[in-house]
Amino acid sequence: MDLSAINPILLVASLMVAATPILLAAVGELVAEKAGVLNLGVEGMMITGAICGFAIAVETGSPVMGFLAAAIGGALLSLIFGVLTQYLLSNQVATGLALTLFGLGFSSLIGQGYIGIKPPSTEKLDIPLLSDIPVLGPILFNHDLMVYVALALVAAVWAVLKFTRTGLILRAVGENHDAAHALGYKVVRVRLLAIMFGGGCAGLGGAYLSLIRVPQWTEGMTAGAGWIALAIVVFGSWRAGRVLLGAYLFGGVTVLQLNLQAAGMAIPVEYLSMSPYLITIAVLVIMSADKSRAALSAPACLGRVFHASS
């Protein structure tokens, strides 16, 4: 094994790229969960976003259009979940699973004609001057636009949740939907919007995978990224900053194990590939083992059905 082949600067730089799809999906799910909705369909929305973005980017030749289409596709799929859980009062766990199963089938149905095609490439920003700074330059300032969009989105979600009236209403709906209803807030409407925001973000995350990270379309290419995003929301104890941390931690593990594979470590490839999932589980265990924290930070109405008469 040759560990010196691993370049630490490149490692950290590719960590940011590896973390971006999960970060996007996790921050969207964070907003939905803050509004009291547990949407387990992240995986389905991501893969739908991945194929919608890929197909539109290939057809139009523009990655920007692709990302827009991915966000719309993800949001539309999440709307199914929204209508079922908010108007038809179905179980959120079961409906989320249905969304994932449907999304996986639906995406490979659309994606049939797109296997083996290369998408139009997204150029890196290469910010002048800043990217020339030694060490920090290639790490921070030499990425494609979406990496920064994801970071901006995290900052925006954090600020909106913490400082604005909108954020307060959203949190009120998630903490106690009956009280929010009594105060005259439209619980169902707020939740629908939060769900669609989550769907849009998950779609963007999926498109980042198919357009930039891989970049190719293969069936089931999200490979559990949506579930890891869900775990990262729990890991982040429903706070935007910690979700960012969790996503970068996961990105770090992924990139490191890929580098170890390339460096020819003595452990078989399959066991190295398992490691991101195992570490996610370990992190979940550590977070939930702390009794006081886990119980206090989850939105109180998470996963509960709201019906005005009850």
Partner: peptide, 18 residues
């Protein structure tokens, strides 16, 4: 396509929950 059947099965769960 095989994927159509998978989507079909997913749809069944949607309608069931609805």
């Amino acid at each position: 396509p095989a994927a159509a059947i998978q989507a079909f099965q997913g749809m069944l769960l949607f309608f069931l929950l609805a």
